[in-house]
Amino acid sequence: MSNYNFAYLDEQTKRMIRRAILKGLAVPGYQVPFASREMPMPYGWGTGGVQVSAATLTPEDTLKVIDQGADDTTNAVSIRKFFERTAGVETTEETEQASVIQTRHRIPEAKLREDQILVYQVPIPEPLRFLEPRETETRKMHSLEEYGLMHVKLYEDISQHGAIATSYAYPVKVEDRYVMDPSPIPKFDNPKMEMAAIQLFGAGREQRIYAVPPYTKVVSLDFEDYPFEATKAEHACDLCGAEDSYLDEVIVDDAGNRMFVCSDTDYCRSRRGAGHVGRLAQEEVA
């Protein structure tokens, strides 16, 4: 292996982070401050998620890392390599096989189980920040449950765009108490947050950890006359034919032709492995 302490961080730091995680699980949706460490990667590359993963991993765990749903992008590959080297844990690209999944901006399509942990990378944990710049005031608003301002944001959306145009980082209310930023996942993923797995959120630069325990109520904010909608592109995956997965739009040539593919690469691959075929799958193979 290497001379790194298991999973890079020293034991004291991991203990500190675990305390923050436990507090976060005890108070679902509440942002717990923690002493975020310098990590060997720039802010914005998942320093918060990496610290939470480091404090969560045990030698027996199997880690999966995804970035926008994909296992093979730079961010995902380098974080996976980071833990391979510093923790020596097994890694996988299969959602089924993983016990800890660190994610940036997606929730896997496959249903997660009770023995799994989903770790989110969070850039800005405070959902009220864009309307109320004062941290003292946003803390007070959380403690007093003064969340009218969240709806002001949605009101502005409707008045400007005729519909709630917020399509990612769509605010949710957790267990009828705290309003929470679900990190920049597409709002298509919001309904999946009521799940069996533990969900942990880490914001490195902002030094906040929060959590959603299994089977916790997570409601997307909306208006009675403009209800929440989990939207996706109106297509099926061009590779695996899936109609229920979140799609990325890919421009394929200079003529502006495009294709839609599952953003969750593992989901797409496993469907194709099971024999599902999309509109353009043949050409791709050829």
């Binding site: 309307l131 301002l149 002001v152 502005e156 409707i158 208006f223 009675e224 006359d225």
Partner: peptide, 27 residues
Amino acid sequence: LRTSVSAGGNIGERLMAVGDRHYGNIR
């Protein structure tokens, strides 16, 4: 006032703060 929010949003804020959740009514 909230200068980054429209006039309608400024007026609506107090309504939303006390629990009004119907966009049409608020507007």
